[in-house]
Amino acid sequence: MFEGRLLQGSLLKKVLEAIKDLVTDTNFDCSETGIALQAMDSSHVALVSLLLKDTGFDHFRCDRNLALGINLQNMSKMLKCAGNDDIITLKAEDEGDTITFMFESPNQDKISDFEMKLMDIDSEHLGIPDTDYQAIVTMPSAEFQRIVRDLSSIGDTAVIGVTKEGISFSTGGDIGKANIVCRQNTNVDKEEDQTTVEIHEPVSLTFALRYLNSFTKATALSPQVTLSLSKELPIVVEYKIEKMGFLRFYLAPKIEE
């Protein structure tokens, strides 16, 4: 059987909110090392990769590898019934066709069980090679969210450029153009307000703002976001999940034909 007890249940709620509009159905791959998920959006240009390590759970048991086929909208409906401070336990039998979500209030005076039907999903797994990216930028996640939202009101695509000075976001549309530059900034009080640029070579790539906007639904998971870019490769937008792992989004660049 599989069982995972997560003291900070709100993390799971936040993960679902971040991915449920991008991916419809996906397998949660459970093994003794944790829970992993990889899924593409329906147009196959964006990919979600989630890792929740067993060590981040208060209690974790997985007797044999399980692929739990889950409709994310339905799981989100169930998790919305959990309080933000609740402890969430996931349970599934080896041969079962359901998953149980147990919610415990912080002072243990309310225990709820929700059982959700599982589904059979043929997943398309992509092999993502380890890459030395040409540029890696870490910046405040709220700032990235703000920039992407602001640019979305002006254009459909953004050019993201990285030089050793910083990262720039540009767009254009019927009403005009916009260009935002965030400079490397390591002299701020709080580490989470820093913008750091690690660069081997300047890089500039074009992406659909609609997807970048969707990725920023993960902002609540982490105060910082890391953007990894290489010429003619998908961008990686990574939110680290404290003590547990990460939520990564990959987005294919727009390339001139």
Partner: peptide
């Protein structure tokens, strides 16, 4: 025109 390429172009399907 710029085209949105699919991920298959960059990563191989397992």
């Amino acid at each position: 025109p710029a085209r949105q390429n699919r991920l298959f172009k960059f990563f191989c399907l397992h």
